[in-house]
Design a protein around this nucleic acid. Structure first.
Length: 895
RNA sequence: GGGCAAUUAGCUCAGCUGGUUAGAGCGCCACAUUGACAUUGUGGAGGUCACAAGUUCGAAUCUUGUAUUGCCCACCA
């Protein structure tokens, strides 16, 4: 027999092991003719700890995959980890510094540092793996991949080379986001802006006044730019030159007219620093102006700064201002100027735009042949256009769809993607140099002195291939005689399981990752990476704040919660009540609430088993259900309800409405199955129905709470049935539907509730037996009479009298339902005042209700225009209410 | 500056294309408890659905505006 309370700790690990050993996670265990259904797990960073973001992702994907598996699909969930280039290198360098190394990059050199990082990653990976298991994730570990393993590296190199040959990857001097702290470039998406108050200076510059928050960049400024239509500066012509006294002496400056200048801002005139500002760079490009580097890659001023050369910006800024002031060039200072400072998302340091020789992906070159399903014909498109097309034409659905708009907006503003990074941990750029010669390929060409490009690729370059690079055959991927196309053709997994079914991830990486997977996969394979994108929101604290590592009070550690409440409870707490794309709040009481639910399910099952045991029946022998005709009212009603339940849950899960389905299951189990059906079953249990319905519940609930359902399944499954994970999804039996029985039982439930309320109103002592007289006619009367035993037990009623005639009532509390009068006799206990009070209250409510209905029904427009069924319904409701009101009035008179 | 969303009970949230007297969980109050379950049961209190106008026979639901909050994008030198 089961323990009194469910103890997740005692069973979860064992069950997981059992699943894994049984091979149930592999698609090979699914029916051979099943439709493939694939999910690529967004690979957690190999360095990290499992956090709530991962937990919610794992829970959602596991539900999708288990549902698909139980529905006979060949379900494959590919797990893996990401080498997370910058993030990982940072973590390891930080650790090495803590261990006393001053500059690990210099001290170790490239080879050794990479080895150190690799070593560290291997350790962390096993932590992540075990944490993923703790969540109950049914992913195929035999297919686990890593973004930095040889087969993926091959894919990266192949795609890079092809893109370069197609002219989609180019190398050029462009302005990029330089992170002086991490000593690397970062992409536009890796720059975040922080509001900052800083001094805003206005200086004299020749005949003009110019303003800046960054005087330290101004050494080389020799262009003043203004709007061509600005009348204040009409007398200056484009190309005019003038002498201006400046920081280190006089400079010769040129007037430039450009429409990008806002005449309303400041003086309407600005000087430009093309080397260190995106906008200035564009202006300079437009007019063919000279560009000069002012700040070095180490963040210090260069020779051009004269006496300030070698200083950091922080140090130089006040000195430069001071110097300009003594020269009489400082006009004013606004100390309260608020501007957005560009900061590195990874390193947290300031971003310094720089011009640098870097590798880029051209997103505007229209040379890739593509045809969306929804579009008429194939055309040569740019990567940008393909990204737009597949979502626009519905090849890919985004849930929730409002993110489609955000996605399009992002694409419209997309610039060429800088893919090179000056770090060591990552896929090295497969380009080789020797003198003026360049060679593109994974390996150096024959001959001496070929040097490989020092840079590595943006980590998202390789993760962008995740859905398919994880499916290539690893051996074939090492065969250098094959092209990428041939490798794909000879990879059975790729042929079977790609495109994947659904990509489930946080909306915060829609641009970073989802968009880039679409870009890379359509280009490299000619296929979309996934059919559906399901985006989940951020998990926040109870008061809506972001959980952050720096504030441990607010952090909820999923592993703590699992050991405290079980993985099932955690999963439910993150899924039920949350909708796609919306942030949600999580706190411990919520998880505890779902733990209670799991325990409720446990005990309900325990009750069922106990009933079987007492009757000497082995639940495992229970197979077929008896015919409907031989079942009790409650049995038929619960079977009907369970048919409806299957319908709803199946529909909701098929449309990714997980919260609705979870909520429905929760209230079915607790409010219907436990509170009513099991109560009815006490004394007159039908073991076949009990076990049958419980089995269904376990199946339907399994995707949500895999552990507890699997454990209970082992107790109630039919001999010969497999583990629940591999069971088939329940089918609907139309024959078992019996809406009439369901409605009849509802009458009974209403009566029982009404009697309970009377008891409470009258303060009837617990355990005290009471007498009840029920007046009802026709079918209702028959139903009630047939359920006498149940009613007596559930209401703790001593004697129950049924009659079809009105009765004379004295010393009784009364209440009225449609077609039913209930009188509760309480010799010596009857409190007329209390009854009066509650009748008065009910009368008042009812009067209001009746008045509302009457005015509605006397409204001609309503009667004419509203659907007839609605009008009839309201009419009968009115009649019912009026009758009830009459009865209450009569009863009041008697008192 | 541009865009997207949210505003319903003390708290966290449902409420689908307009139609019963607006729901749930937690919390609160009262009562119960050897019974599958105190990780429980029964009953209850608590909401003019942010505000205003409009469309409609009828609005939490549709339209417009206002306020507040949150997020994303751009970034003004």
């Amino acid at each position: 027999m089961l323990e009194k309370a469910y103890d997740p700790k005692a069973v979860e690990d064992q069950i997981y092991e059992m699943w894994e050993e049984s091979g149930a996670f592999k698609p090979e265990s699914c029916p051979k003719d099943g439709e493939p259904f694939t999910i690529s797990m967004p690979p957690p960073n190999a360095t990290g700890q499992l956090h709530l973001g991962h937990a919610v992702m794992l829970a959602l994907e596991d539900i999708f995959i288990r549902f698909a598996r139980m529905n006979g699909k060949r379900a494959l969930w590919v797990p893996g980890t990401d080498h997370a280039a910058i993030a990982t290198e940072n973590v390891v360098i930080k650790k090495l510094k803590e261990q006393g190394m001053k500059d690990p990059r210099k001290e170790l050199g490239r080879e050794k540092l990479i080895a150190k990082i690799a070593e560290f990653v291997e350790e962390s990976k096993s932590t992540i793996r075990s944490q993923i298991r703790k969540m109950g994730s049914s992913c195929d570990w035999s297919r686990e991949r890593y973004t930095f393993e040889p087969s993926l590296n091959r894919c990266v190199n192949e795609v890079f080379c092809r893109m370069k040959n197609d002219g989609l990857i180019y190398r050029g001097h462009r302005i990029v986001n330089w992170d002086p702290k991490l000593q690397t470039t970062v992409s536009d998406d890796e720059v975040v802006y922080k509001e900052e108050k800083s001094a805003f200076f206005t200086f004299k510059y020749g005949p003009f006044e110019i303003s800046t928050a960054r005087p330290e960049t101004k050494f080389g400024d020799k262009y003043v730019v203004m709007h061509p239509k600005d009348t204040r500066y009409k007398k200056y012509k484009h190309g005019d030159t003038f002498e201006a006294e400046w920081i280190n002496g006089s400079v010769r400056a040129t007037v430039i007219k450009d429409e990008s200048v806002d005449p309303e801002f400041g003086t309407g005139v600005m000087t430009i620093t093309p080397w260190h500002d995106h906008i200035d760079f564009e202006i300079a490009e437009r007019h063919g102006l000279e560009k000069e580097q002012i700040i070095g890659f180490d963040g210090r001023l260069l020779e051009i700064a004269g006496e300030f050369a070698g200083m950091t910006i922080e140090k130089a800024r006040p000195l430069i201002v001071e110097k300009l002031k003594t020269k009489g060039l400082l006009v004013k200072v606004d100390e309260n100027y608020v501007h957005n400072k560009a900061v590195s998302q990874r390193g947290g340091g300031a971003i310094e735009p720089q011009i640098k020789l870097q590798w880029f992906i051209d997103v505007n070159k229209e040379i890739v042949p593509w045809k969306s399903k929804g579009s008429k014909k194939a055309a040569n498109m740019s990567l940008k256009q393909i990204m737009h097309s597949v979502v626009h034409h519905g090849d890919i659905d985004i849930i929730p769809d409002r993110f489609g708009k955000t996605y399009f907006h992002w694409i419209d503003n997309l610039r060429d993607w800088c893919i090179s990074r000056q770090i060591w941990w990552g896929h090295r750029i497969p380009v080789w140099y020797k003198g003026d010669e360049t060679y593109t390929g994974a390996n150096a060409p024959d001959g001496k002195d070929w040097r490989q490009d020092e840079d590595t690729l943006d980590t998202w370059f390789s993760s962008a291939m995740w859905t398919w690079s994880t499916l290539v055959d690893q051996k074939k991927a090492q065969d250098m005689s094959l092209s990428l196309k041939e490798i794909l053709e000879k990879s059975p997994d790729f042929q079977t399981f790609h495109p994947t079914a659904v990509m489930e991830t946080g909306y915060d990486i829609l641009f970073f990752w989802v968009a880039r997977m679409i870009l890379m996969t359509t280009y490299a394979t000619g296929q979309i990476p996934f059919k559906t994108v399901y985006l989940h929101g951020l998990i926040r604290t109870r008061d809506g704040r972001k959980m952050s590592k720096s504030d441990p009070e607010t952090m909820i550690d999923p592993l703590d919660m699992i050991s405290k409440y079980g993985a099932d409870a955690l999963r439910l707490s993150m899924i039920v009540g949350q909708s796609a794309g919306a942030d949600s709040r999580l706190y411990e009481e919520k998880i505890a609430g779902y733990r209670n639910f799991i325990n409720k399910l446990w005990n309900a099952s325990r009750f069922v088993l106990l009933q079987c045991e007492q009757a000497g029946i082995d639940p495992k022998t229970i197979d077929k259900l008896p015919e409907n005709a031989s079942l009790s009212l409650a049995d038929r009603a619960v079977l009907h309800a369970s048919e409806c339940l299957i319908e709803d849950i199946t529909k909701n899960l098929s449309t990714y409405s997980l919260s609705e389905a979870g909520d429905r299951l929760y209230s079915f189990v607790w409010d219907y199955f436990c509170d009513w059906y099991l109560e009815f079953s006490k004394g007159t249990a039908n073991h076949a129905v009990l076990v049958h319905v419980l089995r269904r519940i376990l199946k339907l609930l399994h995707p949500y709470c895999p552990f507890v359902t699997e454990q209970l399944w082992s107790q109630v499954k039919k001999t010969g049935d497999s583990a629940l994970i591999s069971e088939t999804w329940p089918k609907i039996h139309a024959k078992r539907k019996d809406a009439k029985a369901f409605a009849d039982l509802q009458i009974l439930i209403d009566v029982v509730s009404a009697i309970r309320k009377l008891r409470t109103d009258q303060n009837v002592e617990p355990g005290k037996e009471i007498m009840v007289t029920i007046v009802s006619r026709g079918h209702t009367g028959e139903v009630l009479e047939s359920q006498e035993a149940h009613m007596r037990r559930m209401c703790k009623v001593g004697s129950l009298t049924f009659t079809t005639d009105a009765v004379k009532i004295e010393n009784a509390a009364s209440t009225f339902l449609p077609e039913i009068e209930i009188h509760l006799s309480l010799a010596g206990l009857f409190d007329a005042d209390k009854l009066k009070e509650s009748l008065l209250k009910e009368q008042a409510e009812l009067t209001k209700y009746v008045a509302g209905l009457e005015s509605k029904l006397s409204n001609k427009s309503f009667v004419d225009r509203a659907p007839k069924a609605l009008v009839d319904e309201q009419k009968s409701k009115l009649a019912e209410a009026e009758e009830k009101l009459k009865k209450i009035e009569e009863r009041m008179q008697q008192l």
